[in-house]
């Protein structure tokens, strides 16, 4: 068995399983363990409050519309995330891989220029957001090692992915896949879990505000 076969076979299965199992385990721990407290008689709708906060926090807070940092985080954040999701789900090699390994995606891959463009958005966002961690005193103070590892690992995964774009080399394909697998294993134990926790975080806050007849 070559290394590439190993990476595409057993190691892929193993890392994907770890990702699914531990991410699910983490979510179960987060959502179903610990104390649940009785809540006060509602003055408003917790459900609508949750919905409002889940949707409302997609945009920056109105008080921060004049704030450069908020604009930066919002634009760079969306640039990175949208670029990344397009790459993840619509890039031709990914569509092919997902169809082969997981599920028959109903959509067609984007053309090459679409790939390049989304990669550029993703990289521009990730690089600026990551570098800011070193030069903004606030963010430098609060950044954990995890935040740097998560950003760095994501960057390396994306970089090797783009380097393998020529699809001429099994080595580059293997390198990218191997790093993806590392990333998948790291994911459930890191701040990358925000991928799944954000609606709950916003939702709990919104429900609390909704119950109190206020907004968050």
């Amino acid at each position: 068995m070559t290394l590439l076969e190993l990476l595409e076979g057993p190691l892929w299965i193993a890392s994907a399983s770890i990702f699914v199992a531990f991410a699910a385990f983490r979510l179960i721990v987060i959502l179903f363990t610990g104390r649940r407290e009785a809540e006060a008689r509602p003055a408003g709708s917790p459900f609508l409050g949750a919905l409002r906060t889940i949707l409302g926090h997609f945009l920056p807070w109105r008080r921060l519309l004049g704030n450069g940092k908020a604009w930066f985080v919002t634009i760079a954040g969306y640039s990175f995330h949208i670029g990344l999701f397009v790459l993840l789900l619509f890039a031709a090699p990914h569509v092919e891989f997902i169809r082969e390994k997981i599920v028959n995606l109903p959509w067609d891959p984007i053309p090459r220029w679409g790939f390049i463009l989304s990669a550029q958005f993703a990289f521009a966002g990730l690089i600026t957001l990551w570098l800011r961690r070193f030069v903004d005193p606030v963010v430098r103070l609060i950044s954990r090692p995890d935040d740097h590892v998560a950003a760095g690992l994501t960057f390396i995964v994306m970089l090797t992915g783009c380097m393998a774009l020529g699809e001429q080399s099994a080595f580059l394909r293997g390198l990218h896949l191997g790093l993806v697998e590392l990333w998948l294993i790291y994911f459930p134990f890191s701040s990358l879990m925000h991928t799944f926790t954000w609606p709950f975080s916003r939702g709990f806050t919104g429900a609390m505000a909704g119950r109190r007849g206020t907004r968050a």
Partner: peptide
């Protein structure tokens, strides 16, 4: 070397426009 160069070329092409923007 050929692997290195295809990788370098892809990355170089991809990051070029980002460099111009920055």
């Amino acid at each position: 070397h050929s692997i290195l160069l295809t990788a370098a070329m892809q990355a170089h092409n991809l990051f070029g426009p980002i460099f111009a923007l920055f």
